[in-house]
Amino acid sequence: MDTKVKYINLKTGIVLLAILLLTRLADQLPWWIFIVPVLITGIVITWRKWPVNCFWVGFLSGFIAWTSASIYFHLRSDGRLLDRFGILAGMIIVAGSGLVGGLMTGLALYTGKSITTNREAHLTL
């Protein structure tokens, strides 16, 4: 992978992180609303013909965003709730949260990209 591709992937990741955090500032919107801007980003990627490895970049961004947000909220508060359930249960919650965030972001980005690149192509991961 050359430097330019790496750079584009990284840039996409940062954009995604920003989207993931900013969409969640409003309490009123449904929790899954972030997939809409992520999907649009996927469309933009095709349009601009960026060489982005969509699912994995999306997954990684989602995983990082949700995991670190979970850890942040745990640490910012007294963190007594997860502590009650022990370190293992806490890790499962945090990792599970990362998995949910990652899967949804990755799939949304990939979907956004694939619906515009090749309408005939079958959706596969």
């Binding site: 969640r24 309490d27 929790w31 899954w32 949700w66 947000a69 979970s70 942040y72 909220f73 745990h74 508060s77 007294d78 963190g79 007594r80 709730l81 997860l82 919650i93 599970g96 949260s97 949910v100 965030g101 949804m104």
Partner: peptide, 18 residues
């Protein structure tokens, strides 16, 4: 429901707040 429940912004970790 796992999505909501594990969502760090509204889910179970928000109940950590003292």
């Amino acid at each position: 429901p796992l999505g909501k429940f594990l969502d760090p912004f509204i889910g179970v970790v928000q109940n950590e707040a003292a």
